[in-house]
Amino acid sequence: MRRASIDRIGITGNGFRAEVLSLGAYVADLTYEGKPLLLRNDGKQSATRAGMALLAPFANRVRNGEYSFNGAKYKLPVNSEGHAIHGFVKNKEWKVLEKGDEFVKMELNSKGEPGYPFELSFSVSYEASKRGFNVEMAAVNAGGTNAPITMGAHPYFVHPTPRSQWFINAGNVFRLEMVGNIPTGRMVPQRLSTYIGEYDDCYRVNEDQVRLIFPHDWEIAIKLNGFHFIQLFTPSWANAVAVEPMTGAPDAFNNGIGLTVLEPGKSLRASFTITPRPKGMEL
């Protein structure tokens, strides 16, 4: 995971401590008042198996790594499943634009990736604010043609109690029916207010907040702005749950669910805030 050339950037303030790596603008560790909030990456895990990776220009999967756009067909690199997954920005070296004790802003310029010949300028800001740990993502079309895009993040939340005792509340949602982790196009209305089970599911959220409620006296609120989907995933290798904000659904490059088509010079922006707080406290 780590190599000598990767910079480690510390953020400290308002009870938070974070370690951000220049590779992928990746949050390898995040704590609040000494409590781990994310599954710490000790350098042995890949970016999407701990910590918080950024996902772009596509979040989650593109079926068979294939899609058509503006009359042309494209082929992306695929994983062992045979799908393209989670974009490529997580594997790129990001540049620090601004840095303070409580924040960092980073950027990445991308052009001509395999299967994605579009030119984009990405940025992310992390801030340990009084309201929570804030993540702001943006992509600007720096090229001369329209570009398809979805964005997301992949945080793994942790707590010392067994995750079967954790409770999630996202209110009324639409669950995307999936076959082989690819949406069929059908959405099923339901209320996502339940103890954590075994998940690898995507939901279209109607509210702007997801709450993870732990035993005893505290919870984590994830306040969403511009992220209209979440992927829930419970890993087999850790007592954790990934709650992944996404601007579009899995395979959006083919099914169009939540897909953004950026015109030249236009931008896509979205943000979320992770707020630990006493149970039941309102933001």
Rank of each mutant, 00 (worst) to 15 (best):
V210W: 00
A242V: 07
A170H: 05
T273Y: 06
V261N: 04
I274S: 08
T275G: 01
M187E: 10
G185E: 13
V158N: 06
G51D: 11
S123L: 07
G13H: 11
R40H: 01
K130E: 08
L38Y: 05
T161A: 13
P160I: 09
A153D: 01
Y203F: 15
M281I: 01
P189V: 05
R175L: 15
A28T: 07
L268C: 09
R269L: 03
S68L: 04
P57Y: 11
N109E: 14
Y126E: 01
V205M: 05
A138C: 09
E93C: 14
K279S: 14
E98I: 00
K35W: 00
V243G: 03
N255E: 07
G258Y: 09
L212S: 10
K111Q: 12
G13V: 02
N239R: 01
L192Q: 06
I168R: 01
A221C: 12
Y156E: 03
P278Y: 08
I196C: 10
F174W: 06
V135G: 03
K99S: 15
Q190C: 14
L54V: 07
P148Q: 08
P278E: 12
P114C: 07
G82L: 08
H86K: 13
L23Y: 12
N109C: 09
N146D: 12
A50S: 15
P160K: 09
K99T: 15
G13N: 08
L232C: 08
G15N: 04
V261R: 01
F214C: 09
G87V: 10
S129N: 11
G280A: 10
P162I: 00
P278N: 09
T12H: 09
V78D: 03
T48H: 13
G197M: 12
M281Q: 09
G226V: 10
S123N: 11
Q231K: 10
V27M: 12
A142P: 00
F214D: 12
A147N: 02
I149K: 09
L30V: 01
Y116N: 10
R3V: 02
Q45T: 00
E177R: 12
G15Y: 01
Y32F: 15
G87T: 08
N255A: 07
R277T: 10
N60Y: 04
Q45M: 08
N141L: 06
T161D: 11
E93K: 15
I222K: 05
P160Y: 07
N181T: 07
P148V: 12
N206L: 14
G34C: 03
W94H: 10
Q45C: 03
R277A: 13
G34L: 02
V27I: 11
A4H: 13
V89K: 11
E177S: 13
N64D: 15
N169C: 10
S267G: 07
A240Y: 02
H159C: 07
I274P: 03
T48R: 13
G280M: 10
P276W: 04
P183C: 14
K266L: 09
F253P: 07
S5Q: 14
N181I: 03
